[in-house]
C-alpha cells in the first residue's frame, strides 16, 4: 500500500468539474514561453480568460485566433488572456504560437496545474475569471465564441 501511494498509483475520484465554479481561481505562477513570469493572483482586477489547449487539438486551433483578437480588442478594458498548453513537449507549441501569431502569455501545463483546475482530461477547456478572482464560467470543449465574447464583454463592464 505504501509503495502504491509512493508511486501515486491509487484509485480515486477527481474532483467534480463544476466544483471550481463560483470559487476563487486556484493560483499559479509559471514562466511563459518567452520566459516572462505569469502569476494569476497578480492579475486580480482584470478579467482573465484561461484556456487549456494542445498543439494536436483541432478545435483549440479554431479558438486561439479569436482569443488573440479579443486580447487586442479588450486588453485596454482589462482583459488578460492566458493559455496553458497541455502538450508533452514545447516544440510543437512554439510552432503553433508562431503560426497563429499569438502574443498573449502561453505557459506549459503540468500535472499539478491540471489537477488544480479539476483535471484537464479533454481539450479545449476555458475558464472565465472575474475581476475579483472568482471563476464564473467553465467551458468544456469548443466554446460558442459569440456567446463567450458576450460574457467577456459583460464581465469587463462590471467594475
Amino acid at each position: 500500500m505504501v509503495l502504491l501511494l509512493i508511486c501515486g498509483l491509487f484509485v480515486l475520484p477527481l474532483q467534480s468539474q463544476t466544483a471550481l465554479l463560483h470559487r476563487l481561481a486556484p493560483g499559479f505562477v509559471r514562466s511563459d514561453l518567452n520566459g516572462q513570469r505569469v502569476d494569476l493572483r497578480a492579475l486580480r482586477g482584470k478579467v482573465v480568460l484561461l484556456n487549456f489547449w494542445a498543439s494536436w487539438c483541432g478545435p483549440c486551433q479554431v479558438e486561439l485566433p479569436a482569443f488573440q483578437s479579443w486580447q487586442t480588442k479588450y486588453g485596454s478594458s482589462g482583459l488578460q488572456v492566458i493559455t496553458v498548453a497541455m502538450d508533452d513537449d514545447t516544440q510543437p507549441v512554439t510552432a503553433v504560437v508562431k503560426k497563429l501569431q499569438l502574443r498573449f502569455p502561453v505557459v506549459m501545463g503540468d500535472d499539478e496545474l491540471g489537477k488544480k483546475y479539476g483535471g484537464i482530461l479533454g481539450l479545449p477547456i476555458t475558464f472565465l475569471i472575474a475581476r475579483n478572482g472568482i471563476i464564473v464560467e467553465r467551458v468544456n470543449g469548443a466554446a460558442d465564441l459569440s456567446q463567450l465574447e458576450m460574457k467577456v464583454h459583460s464581465l469587463l463592464s462590471d467594475r
Binding site: L121, N140, G141
Partner: peptide, 19 residues
C-alpha cells in the same frame, strides 16, 4: 464521444493517477 473527462471520469468510473 466528448473526452475522457466527460465520458469516463465524469460518469464516475474508476481512475488511477500517476505514471
Amino acid at each position: 464521444a466528448n473526452n475522457f473527462g466527460d465520458d469516463w471520469v465524469g460518469k464516475g468510473y474508476r481512475v488511477e493517477q500517476g505514471n
